[in-house]
């Protein structure tokens, strides 16, 4: 019975998420963000990020982790991942808001995604003590990365 109810509400939730502009809570104390179709149009901090810092975060394998799975226009970087698409020209393919949603809640685009939700703190299992209750990246760090990726407009690597 409880199981059936969960399945029904999950189906409902999924259709709501697809059809309506959503509103989701961020981490403890972090601002809520609004989802419109497949984008989060408004900055999580209310301000534009810093692209230079964003670049450093994307390249940092312990903080951004992006290059574990992605490659990009970084010829100087060895050992880039092949699990996700190449990020070259991502700013030409996706809008700022679409990029933001893909970092904040990639499961909205693909429920089976392997890409982590960088701003999520709830509904996770067995998170190591050092990371419990914290998102992978702060709102500011996400905005910095969004600013950097938005500027990657050249599709050639």
């Amino acid at each position: 019975m409880a199981g059936l109810r969960a399945i029904l509400s999950a189906a409902l939730a999924a259709s709501l998420a697809g059809a309506m502009p959503g509103l989701a809570e961020g981490g403890a104390g972090s601002p809520a963000y609004g989802i419109v179709k497949d984008a989060i149009p408004v900055s999580l901090t209310g301000a534009a990020g810093n692209a230079a810092r964003g670049r450093m975060l994307v390249l940092d394998r312990r903080v951004g982790l992006c290059l574990l799975c992605h490659s990009g226009p970084f010829p100087e970087e060895r050992f880039q991942g092949t699990i996700g698409p190449d990020l070259s020209g991502i700013g030409a393919r996706l809008s700022e808001g679409q990029i933001r949603l893909r970092i904040v809640e990639p499961a909205r685009i693909n429920t089976a995604t392997i890409m982590p939700a960088y701003f999520r703190t709830e509904g996770l299992t067995r998170v190591a003590a050092a990371f419990r209750g914290k998102p992978i990246l702060s709102a500011q760090q996400i905005e910095d990365i969004v600013a950097f990726l938005t500027g990657l407009r050249d599709e050639s690597r």
Binding site: L68, R78, F79, Q80, G81, I83, P116, R120, R126, K134
Partner: peptide, 25 residues
Amino acid sequence: RRQGQLNLACAQCHDERWGKKLAGT
């Protein structure tokens, strides 16, 4: 089961993505 802050299941790497590169590995 997905677990950890990165919310990944063993199967997502070892059943579904073996042969791909995680950074250089």
